[in-house]
Amino acid sequence: MENKNKKSFLERMGESQVWKSIIRSGVPRSRRQRMQAILGSVFLHLHPARIPKHAVKIGYTWCMGGLSFFLFIVLTITGLLLMFYYRPTVEYAYTDIIDMAEQVPLGIMRELHRWGAHAMVLTVWLHMLRVFMTGSYKPPREFNWGVGVLLMTLTMFLSFTGYLLPWDQLAIWAITVGTNMARAHPFIGHEGPGASLLAIGDINLVHAGSDVRFALLGGRFVGEASLLRFYVLHCIGVPFITMILMAVHFWRIRKDGGISGPL
């Protein structure tokens, strides 16, 4: 009453030096400021400032690409916390997993990580299905669809490499079943067609101790070295490639004209 021009706390905060230094455009109220809010933020300007109306409809986007990215971040954070407690050795791995549930405060990090990983496989599949169902892979987005297929493969490979780490019966036998396939890889698996052709005289170059399965497992069976290799692949190797491809994927969405839609 006393002063009609009295500004609210939020408004005053929006005009403070600290706020303005972080969010360059002030509190986004006007149309101009709202566009500035997107363009002026390194994270938000992944988006254009304006998008077609159908692009905000859940019925069209399903939100699954965004949720896959969100799950990747959730999995990175929970995975990082798990790395504090987990030692990838045959001696400690299993007991460390038990400790995570029983000794660590807020002991649902492993649950968040495991169920998040399963959920991410699903959200990526659903994202792929949505893109197919709306025909969004068609030109000019054909390259980005290809990048997406690679990302989907990497998602499953990330989940697969993580499957071994608890070092329980479920883990080693699922990985044994999975990696036994590599044994039969043409030419570079020792039980694959053509492997026996790679020989000098009587000496086979590709045998159980030198084939692609050996390279993957670091041994002839799933053991100590496999655990370390899968750990490194799971925590650094595959996420590294995934992040690069994600950058390409997001960048290409913008370059290919943003979200697909009818002309």
Partner: peptide, 30 residues
């Protein structure tokens, strides 16, 4: 995700034993 994680514990079977093959041995579901 949090509700799921609180309600369902992540599975953990017996420690790995290369000598005991479970029957059936299954790959991850996907």
């Amino acid at each position: 995700l949090i509700v799921w994680s609180i309600l369902v514990a992540a599975p953990l079977e017996e420690p790995a034993n290369p000598a005991a093959t479970p029957n059936p041995s299954k790959a991850p579901w996907y």
